[in-house]
Amino acid sequence: MSVRRLVAGFLLVAASLVAPPGVAAAAAAPGDVLSARAVNAPGFFYANVWTITYQSTSATGSPITVSGTVIVPKGANANTPVVGYAPGTHGLGDQCAPSRHLEAGDETEGLLIHQYATRGFAVAVTDYEGIGTPGEHTYMAGRAEGHATLDAVRAALRLSGTGLSANTRVAIVGYSQGGHAAGWAAQLAPTYAPALNIAAYAVGAPPADLKVVADHNDGGDNAGLVLAAGYGIDVTYPDLDITPYLNDTGRAAITDIRDDCTDELQTKYSGRSMADYTTEDVLSRPEWSARVDEQKLGGTTPRAPVLLYHSNGDEILPVQVSVALRSAWCAGGGNVTFQRTYTGGHFATAALMSPSVTSWVGDRLAGRSTAGNC
């Protein structure tokens, strides 16, 4: 049995032990708050902030515990919208968790989160599966990311003391890995979280096709992200096992990588090829090829308006993955606003696009319509 299943089982047993005599304890549902702790997050003097754990669902359908942060501006009420914020890549280790960095005041995406919170929106930030909670981070597993993002919003709406209403408007936003998560949330929401009143999705530079992204980065400065994605997919699915296809260097790398944060992933493995770590092309194996293809965005069309944006100069995630995603979602009848920008590299685009993205999201949360540009 996996660590994640053991933890979920422990939580259910613990709940049954504290139930009143003669009353059966109810199993936690996705989005239920399992713990909450008020924190003093530097910079968020205008808001109440909680670090939480909440129930979610793995990519394979198992109950899991995920951590995150809920930021609610003081004076929030039933009309206060909620933004589900899916962070970009932070790494694989627990110490990389956005919730820990928000509490410490050194979160790299803090200014982007402030863009929403200072407008008066509550913000629910997920850590994703396996960062900050027991188990491995299922990096780039789309369903796990989408579930965790949607359940962070449900948890924020169920958290006591916020003043928020379950019926309030919701937006889901994210960039890079967060764009992948936001895109998956958009595809999963109608069946996984149909009660959420989702008004918009902002999907920035998503790694919408992992095979294209892996080929683009193999041997480059960001090869470590490819290795991390291979690790993340491997720990997601019990039917996969990458170890028989690793050489000695690969086995050492996989052992080392599991607690690395983004800066380590980018520096340790820069310039390396996957062939340096493997005895054969893992993606040529049918079981691996099929599982990697399952993470591809575009198979289901979002029902709420989507802002999809990506820079032509993105050095990590090639813009063609978003071009293809736009075509897929538009072909399905989606309301998509696609902005193919000239804003430079990957990280610069996140910052430069933030004001206009936040404004677009704010318009949707205010009830203003958009026709898209399909």
Results as ranks from 00 to 15, higher is better:
residue 200 A to N: 03
residue 68 G to C: 04
residue 107 E to A: 15
residue 349 T to W: 09
residue 295 Q to Y: 03
residue 343 T to L: 15
residue 323 V to A: 13
residue 27 A to V: 06
residue 153 V to L: 03
residue 16 S to W: 07
residue 71 I to V: 15
residue 338 F to S: 03
residue 40 N to F: 08
residue 335 N to A: 15
residue 286 P to Q: 09
residue 297 L to N: 04
residue 202 A to D: 09
residue 280 E to P: 01
residue 276 D to V: 11
residue 344 G to P: 01
residue 244 P to M: 02
residue 204 G to K: 07
residue 227 L to H: 06
residue 313 G to V: 08
residue 164 L to M: 09
residue 195 A to M: 13
residue 115 Q to K: 12
residue 231 Y to S: 02
residue 187 Q to Y: 00
residue 15 A to N: 14
residue 60 T to G: 03
residue 362 G to N: 13
residue 35 S to W: 06
residue 66 V to Q: 10
residue 215 D to G: 05
residue 185 A to P: 02
residue 164 L to E: 02
residue 136 E to V: 14
residue 156 A to C: 06
residue 72 V to Q: 01
residue 195 A to N: 15
residue 122 A to W: 09
residue 36 A to K: 12
residue 39 V to M: 04
residue 274 M to I: 07
residue 254 I to G: 02
residue 6 L to M: 03
residue 227 L to V: 02
residue 82 V to K: 00
residue 337 T to V: 12
residue 235 V to E: 01
residue 246 L to S: 02
residue 202 A to M: 10
residue 145 E to W: 06
residue 123 V to Q: 06
residue 278 T to P: 03
residue 99 S to N: 01
residue 270 S to E: 08
residue 337 T to D: 13
residue 98 P to M: 10
residue 179 G to F: 15
residue 138 T to M: 10
residue 171 A to I: 08
residue 235 V to I: 07
residue 215 D to C: 09
residue 219 G to P: 13
residue 158 R to H: 10
residue 273 S to I: 05
residue 354 S to Y: 04
residue 165 S to H: 06
residue 331 A to K: 10
residue 277 Y to H: 11
residue 165 S to L: 05
residue 56 S to A: 11
residue 119 R to C: 13
residue 64 I to V: 14
residue 364 R to P: 05
residue 104 A to V: 02
